[in-house]
Design a protein around this nucleic acid. Structure first.
Lengths: 71, 71
DNA sequence: CGTGTAAGGAATTCTGACACG
DNA sequence: CGTGTAAGGAATTCTGACACG
């Protein structure tokens, strides 16, 4: 059961559109932060990025910290 | 923490391609079982289906039962 | 540096239908 | 009944580049 719990959180299964909707970030931002080695999506065989819920939380944390540093 | 655990499992965030890869089912099968009221994905504003990990487990359970009944 | 955007192509998704059995 | 498939269109995703500041 615990094992499954973790797999839900870390399983890379979510595509870009859903990520931008859940985080409020733009595609550009999400890809840029990947370029900066802040997030590491997997890729499907055709090159589509797939993120985990954990990745999404990470992105939201980064965004929040950035907001705080700007104010 | 527990609340988050459940949200990972039930959050509708996964699109068709990933579902077919995780379940081994065809798109046709997944859509047909929806037609039969066995699974209930959400839809994005543009009409794209989104499934949860729970949905995927359900689909795998259905597939497994079907396999057993055929043997 | 961090992000928006237009460009062009490729992969994904959708529906309704026909086929087979 | 349950599933495959071809059709056509729409939405998504990708990369590399230019722009701005």
């Amino acid at each position: 059961m615990l094992k499954n719990t973790f797999s839900y959180r870390y399983k890379k299964a979510i595509t870009m559109k859903t990520v931008t909707e859940m985080t409020g970030l733009s595609e550009r931002q999400v890809r840029y932060w990947e370029e900066k080695k802040l997030v590491f999506p997997e890729r499907t065989s055709s090159g589509i990025r797939r993120y985990s819920f954990s990745d999404i939380e990470l992105l939201m944390n980064i965004a929040e910290k950035r907001r705080l540093s700007l104010n």
